[in-house]
Design a protein around this nucleic acid. Structure first.
Lengths: 188, 188
DNA sequence: TTCTTATGCTACGCTACGGTAGCGTACTGT
DNA sequence: ACAGTACGCTACCGTAGCGTAGCATAAGAA
């Protein structure tokens, strides 16, 4: 639409970057509730007044920072549905174990329960996150590896659901055996 | 161990009950982070000093209140694994849509990420919650409806995971068609 | 160089919260 | 009836947080 919204002034870029970096740090360490403007200012070295010059409120900063959590999604193409799924789930399990966002996400989910803006942000985040899953499944449908009448979002839930469940609710391991069990169940 | 810890004084019982009731209300409405001792006192009519006479800290009150969230679990026994599973999942879907705890749970999950005591409480809550699932699966194994070498906790994750996923992450419907799809996948 | 603009600084105001102390009163169990 | 005790009330303390105002200064753009 509007392109890169030309920011010419280096000072603005530097300030924003520093603030976002420190916001991200606090987000990962303490969740949404633990993010404090005063502390961002203190640690990043950017004055609080400057922060409020770039974001109208704490909420706006939080939403901006959270929106940048998702990395560029990649849909594997290994030649077959099962191996694609294994790649997806193996990557998901690894992310859930190690990635920074996996400790932030529950606080986003919680906040989304009561805040419309955060809810919208979470929806966008989730969509981007699940895109590779949908891509792989659609491709398999096109190739006839899955019957067309199976609902894509059902399969996504069958594949990803058990992992989210284990990471945050059951708190159990997600090893190769589990990955195979999930694939066997979801793709029969 | 110690039995019902005999509380004779009606005043204590009344105060505690009122405080817990209001704590529960705030918990459901605003999550863990939204619970305030001042407001509990204000609305319940129980003095703040009295609250601190019964609970040493805000955390203790929160953990006490959260521990009471789970209702008495019931494992269905309809005669067959598939219909048992359908009963479990149908009940789960309904709970996730309507029960009060379903709006609180994300905040517990979030807090558990950073607080050891809340983490332990969540573990107990989760265990009680999943007990009926395990019971049904174990019974099916005993009856030979499922091969014994299938891991029980894997099946629990396959059954319940997709529902948790839909309720809080994907935010999609959980209708009868979905229930059947999950059962078909988890119990083959 | 000169003009513009972003920034830093200090000092606020306001609200909310957790937790405590002291004292008088009302209730409950015996 | 009486003694013990749970209770309410008021007034605190200290901390933390969001958000703003005014003014001087430094850095970038032309």
């Amino acid at each position: 639409m509007s392109g890169p919204t030309q920011i010419t002034d280096k000072r603005v870029e530097r300030s924003k970057a520093k603030v976002l970096a420190e916001t991200y740090r606090q987000l990962v360490q303490s969740g949404i509730a633990g993010v404090s403007i005063d502390e961002i200012s203190r640690i990043s070295g950017i004055s609080k007044t400057t922060i409020y010059r770039h974001w109208p409120s704490r909420s706006a900063l939080l939403i901006d920072a959270c929106s940048r959590l998702g990395g560029a999604p990649v849909a594997p193409d290994t030649g077959g549905l099962r191996s694609d799924a294994r790649a997806l789930l193996s990557h998901l399990a690894h992310q859930l174990r190690t990635a920074n966002w996996s400790s932030v996400y529950p606080s986003i989910i919680d906040a989304a329960e009561r805040d419309a803006e955060i809810c919208a942000m979470q929806a966008a985040l989730h969509k981007a996150f699940m895109a590779p899953f949908e891509a792989v499944i659609e491709r398999a449908k096109a190739k006839g590896e899955i019957p067309r009448d199976r609902v894509t979002s059902d399969i996504v839930a069958l594949l990803a659901g058990p992992f989210f469940f284990r990471r945050w609710f059951a708190k159990e391991e997600m090893d190769d055996h589990f990955i195979d069990a999930v694939i066997d169940a979801a793709i029969r």
